[in-house]
Amino acid sequence: MNLFAGLAGLGRSVLTLLAAFGRVALFTLDALSHIVRPPFYPREFGVALMHMGWLSLPVVGLTAVFTGGALALQIYAGGARFNAEAVVPQIVAIGMVRELGPVLVGLMIAARVTSSIAAEIATMKVTEQIDALVTLSTHPMKYLVAPRVLAALLTVPVLVGVGDVIGVAGGYVVATENLGFNAAAYLKNTVDFLEPLDIVSSLVKGAAFGVIAAVMGCYYGMTSGRGAQGVGRATKGSVEAAAVLILAANFVLTGVFFSI
């Protein structure tokens, strides 16, 4: 009897999880479809672009520079165990561009942008501003969701590119100032080692993570519960979901790019 109850509970959990995935997938498709269908709201898009892109640069830059520096120290220390200290430029470059740059930028965007979107939209829902939009003949998916998702799709790859460069620069500074590397040789090794596919994979990951971050913020905001508790849960849920999905998407995309 207990076994059947356990199985039934497991089945219910799986169904609930699948239903949640289905709702998020439908919401994502709806959001993407509104990006290409008029009316468009350029002012909202511009505000989202500024908020997600320009205003995220300091946190992305700081995250990247410290990570690049730490990476150089770790690789140097680890490489020294089998006389391979010289690989620091190559491993910093590939580590930042293929993996750490996109993932860390994605996670920082999830912390900074996803939470902000979810809190803002959830508050709008709780205070009936979403209903007010509808009564003013304005579709919330077009006015609130589409501009934010499009802005994330376009800005996060740029942020990832900037993060990659700053991360590599962080490694360069540590390697040349503290570890005794020759500056010109470090740069040459970095540039020679990176392949176009490394950069493409970094930017594609950035675009995917940007969409995930924006969609999760919008989804949790639009489906939030009532009151301050509803806003709090929406914000927390959005960041958790975005972070987990970004890491899962990173695994899948890394597998895809390895197979190319």
């Binding site: 205070t127 009936e128 501003q129 209903d131 007010a132 509808v134 009564t135 003013l136 003949s137 304005t138």
Partner: peptide, 29 residues
Amino acid sequence: LARFGMLFQGGALFDSLPVWQNVAFRLLR
């Protein structure tokens, strides 16, 4: 919906817009 106007219980004004853009919301788009 263009035939309707509605006053919400809490006002439901858009925080991010100045008052005149709230009032003229429908006339701006």
